[in-house]
Design a protein around this nucleic acid. Structure first.
Lengths: 212, 212
DNA sequence: GAGCTTTCGCTACGCGTCGTAGCGTAACTG
DNA sequence: CAGTTACGCTACGACGCGTAGCGAAAGCTC
C-alpha cells in the first residue's frame, strides 16, 4: 500500500477526516485515464470527473500530475514478490517475468517513463519514485542474493561495500534490460527472452565473483 | 546528420526553398530550451523565439513537440563510434563510455525518456525514434561482434536467427543498463561502473555461446 | 446536544499554451 | 515577367492549469 501524503508532521486529529474512499477512487480513475488517454493527454479535471470528486479535492492532496501518477502506478508493484523456485536461475526468471508483466500494462508503460523523465528536473519527485517504486524492486535483488548464498550458489560476500556496488549493478542490469526491451525495443519480455537473459546474467555473475 | 522531414515523395523543385539555416537554428534552440527548461516546460513558442523564426514556421516542418525533440536530440548520437582498442572488452568499454557521456547531458536525460514515453501511444513516433536514434546504436553491437569474431574472441555464429536474437538481447542489456543507471538510479556511469558491467556481460556472453 | 475544525463540492476566474487562419512579403524558377 | 512556395506577423478560439471563495457536510470535544 502507498502511505500517501502525510507531509504534515502528523495528521490533524480534529475536523472532518479525509475520505479514504476518495483516495482509492482517484488512484483508480488515474490508472483508467492512463490506459485510455496516456500520460500526455491525461488531465486532472478528467481524473476528477471519473473519480466523482471535485477538481479542488485533487489539488488538496497532490501537488500535481507527477505526484498523482507516481502514487497511482506504485500500487502495481505491490504484487512483486520473490518466488522460491529452488534455484537462483529459476528465482530470477520468476521475478523478471513478474516485472515484465507489470511493464506490459499500458498504464505502466506510458506512466513510468514519463515520470522518470520529469524526475530528471525534479529532485523531490525522484525521491518519491525511489521510495515508492524503485526501492521495492531493489530489495528483491538483495533477498535473492541472500537466498542464493544460503543455498551455496554464490560465495559469501566479504567486502560489504563491494557487495553493495554489485547489487546496484545487478539491479540496473535487470531492470534496465527489461525496461529497454519492453519500452524501447517494444517487444515483449516473454519466457524465451527471460531465459536467455537470465543465462547470460548468471554466467556473468558466477564468473565475476572472486577476482578483482 | 539527420535527414529530416522529406515526407513528401520528393522536394518540390519550384518556389522558395526552405531555409537550411532555420532548420539548424531551430534544432539548436530546441536543445538549449531542453537544457534550461526541460521537456515539460518547453514550449514551441519559446523555441521559435530563441531560433529567431516565426512559430508558424515550426509547425510547417514538424507535427509537434515530439517530432521536433526527437530530431533535435538525434544529432547527439552522431558522435557514437565503435573504437578499435584491440580487445572486445576494451571496445565495449569504450562505446559504453561514449553512450554514457551522451546520456549524461541534461538535454538527453529529459528528452529521451519523455519521447519514449510518448512513443508508447504513438506508433509513427516510435518508428521515428527507431530509425534516427535506436538503430544507430544497435548497429554498433553488430559491428562489435563482427570484429570480435574476426579476432577469434567469439565463435562464429551458425544460426543467423539465433544470432539476431542474441544481438537484440545484448543491445537491450547494454543500453538498458546504462539508461537505468543514469536516469533511474541517477548515478553516473563512470569508468569503474563500466568496467564492472563489461566484465559481467562478457563473462556471460562467452559462457553462453555454444550450449543450447 | 452546541461549538469548533477540517474537508468537500461547486463555480468562477486569470493565465498560459496550443494549433490554425489569414495576409502581405520574400525567394527562387522557367 | 508570371508562377509557386516559404516566411514573418497578427489574431483568434479552445483548452488545461491552478487558485479563490463560498456554503454545506462530517467528524471531534466538551
Amino acid at each position: 500500500m502507498v502511505t500517501g501524503m502525510q507531509s504534515r508532521t502528523s495528521a490533524p486529529r480534529t475536523g472532518r477526516p479525509r475520505s479514504a474512499a476518495a483516495d482509492a477512487a482517484i488512484l483508480e480513475a488515474t490508472r483508467a485515464a492512463l490506459v485510455e488517454l496516456g500520460w500526455s493527454k491525461l488531465t486532472l479535471g478528467d481524473v476528477a470527473t471519473r473519480a466523482g470528486v471535485a477538481k479542488t479535492t485533487l489539488y488538496r492532496r497532490w501537488a500535481g500530475k507527477n505526484e498523482l501518477v507516481v502514487d497511482a502506478v506504485a500500487v502495481l508493484f505491490d504484487e512483486l514478490e520473490l518466488p522460491d523456485r529452488g534455484s537462483l536461475a529459476a528465482d530470477i526468471e520468476g521475478v523478471v517475468l513478474q516485472f515484465a508483466a507489470i511493464l506490459g500494462r499500458p498504464e505502466a508503460k506510458t506512466a513510468l517513463m514519463a515520470v522518470v523523465a520529469e524526475s530528471t528536473r525534479d529532485e523531490p519527485l525522484r525521491e518519491r519514485i525511489r521510495t515508492s517504486i524503485v526501492d521495492r524492486q531493489k530489495r528483491l535483488v538483495l533477498e535473492g542474493r541472500a537466498r542464493a548464498t544460503a543455498r551455496g550458489e554464490l560465495p559469501p560476500e566479504s567486502d560489504p561495500a563491494a557487495a553493495a556496488r554489485t547489487a546496484d549493478l545487478i539491479f540496473d542490469m535487470v531492470a534496465g534490460a527489461v525496461v529497454h526491451r519492453t519500452l524501447v525495443s517494444a517487444e515483449p519480455a516473454d519466457e524465451e527472452w527471460v531465459r536467455s537473459f537470465t543465462r547470460v546474467l548468471l554466467l556473468g555473475l558466477k564468473g565475476a565473483t572472486g577476482q578483482d
